[in-house]
Design a protein around this nucleic acid. Structure first.
Lengths: 244, 244
DNA sequence: CCTCGATTGGGCTTGACAGCCCAATGGTGG
DNA sequence: CCACCATTGGGCTGTCAAGCCCAATCGAGG
């Protein structure tokens, strides 16, 4: 239960060994995110990470151990991204808007999907026991939203009527589902619609008039091309988030 | 583009041949839904469908053709289920509630996920070209909701302010994402929260006071055990929908 | 009743991938 | 300077699944 990362505890390796292990992990995460678990074999990993045969066996004795380590790595990436300064712990509607705009402008979102969600979908039905690891990650992700909404309530920014837990679940589900629909359609629009509509709902609980950039939910403002923030530079150190 | 089902057009087979092909397809859909595409091999298919070796090659020359046929079959199942009488073409809030309650009470939803969504997630990154088929199915699915909401507007049941397309997208995304989260958590709660919260939003556009069974969105009514409709018999002829 | 084509059955071969082994290297402490 | 151990390299083999072939059977039309 504790050995979530698979064999070879990183802290028992030398500096060079840790570096090699990290390099493998990083490239594995990238490859798996781009091509999926099944389409990624160890020969590709060897070439990508510049390592060779027995190294994979040395640091990750089985493919399962590698996948588990990648899951942990991606989970940590997503969570640290959502906890980063740029979103101010989601204590305002603008923080949620900035978050949505980031993914709406993030091209990988509708190409490879969510780094955690697509991985989860692909292996959830296999015999790999990854439920606990993934469930914990998604719980923490949702709690990031929930705690932000609770803080907004404490700050008087939204009504006490709102149910933070349910709204947080809707936001995360809309993101995961919207990402899947966007992947299938090869078009960001479904994700954009889902996220903005969910945030529109959140806004209906706002206590102040709110200075939203777009009108509440009237008209199909979402369906035309232009973005609202362009979001390209909401990024900072989160290149790690989805790919890379 | 037209040969979506793969080789051997069904209408060019004898009655017996069609029956065999249908039997293979049905069992393949069930197995793939339960175990995933990669974990399903032709030996399992042979035993499940009671057919043998060359029959798979005869009716479905490649695995890709079989998967494509399964996708088409599942898409048709989902769409015909959503278009069935029981949901009255989604022309009322109660129809949406009945829909949500069905899936909340449908145990497969948090075990194997959505019959179409989980399939899509698993193979979207492979070289199989299934985007068009899947995109069409999801579009039609979303349109089912959208047209229902538009009808509700025409009937004066909800405000003209509502954006049917975006709300429909949110509903579908919440379902897909909620299903994924429920699968990971091995618990129906995330799906329940996501769907009910999305429908709560839809209800805020209602013109009449509404006789909803639960209070709007106050309190965490979702997090306790009891369901709202128990939904077990919203079903009818839709055993085909997800499994079977 | 006969013939022919469609349908069915089981076995087989090829290819790919995961996992493993042995040899070589490099660095670190004694 | 030496010895030992962690680290690295490349190749190898067992396993499994997909795709294919040949033989047998069944049904329909003449």
């Amino acid at each position: 239960m504790t050995a979530t990362t698979g064999a070879r505890d990183p802290h028992k390796l030398t500096g060079k060994g840790q570096a090699t292990r990290a390099r493998i992990l990083e490239h594995a995460a990238q490859l798996i995110y781009a091509k999926g678990v099944h389409a990624t074999n160890n020969e590709q990993l060897r070439r990508a990470a510049g390592v060779s045969g027995s190294q994979l066996n040395h640091y990750f004795p089985t493919k399962e151990s590698l996948v588990l380590a990648v899951i942990a790595w991606q989970a940590e990436s997503v969570l640290s991204f959502h906890r980063s300064e740029q979103f101010a712990r989601f204590d305002s509607l603008d923080a949620f808007r900035a978050w949505a705009d980031f993914y709406i402008g993030y091209e990988h979102a509708y190409q490879e999907g969510c780094s955690l969600g697509s991985l989860a979908s692909e292996i959830i039905k296999t015999d790999l026991d990854v439920h606990d690891e993934l469930a914990s990650a998604f719980d923490q992700w949702r709690d990031t939203f929930r705690e932000g909404i609770e803080r907004m309530q404490q700050l008087g920014r939204i009504s006490a009527e709102a149910d933070p837990a349910r709204l947080a679940t809707l936001l995360l589900a809309a993101f995961q589902g919207g990402t899947l629909l966007a992947q299938v359609a090869r078009n960001i629009a479904p994700l954009k619609d889902a996220l903005q509509t969910a945030i529109d709902y959140l806004r209906t609980f706002a206590t102040s008039p709110d200075v939203g950039v777009t009108a509440p939910q009237v008209g199909g403002g979402v369906h035309e091309a232009g973005g609202r923030l362009d979001s390209e530079d909401v990024s900072g150190g989160q290149g790690r988030l989805l790919a890379r």
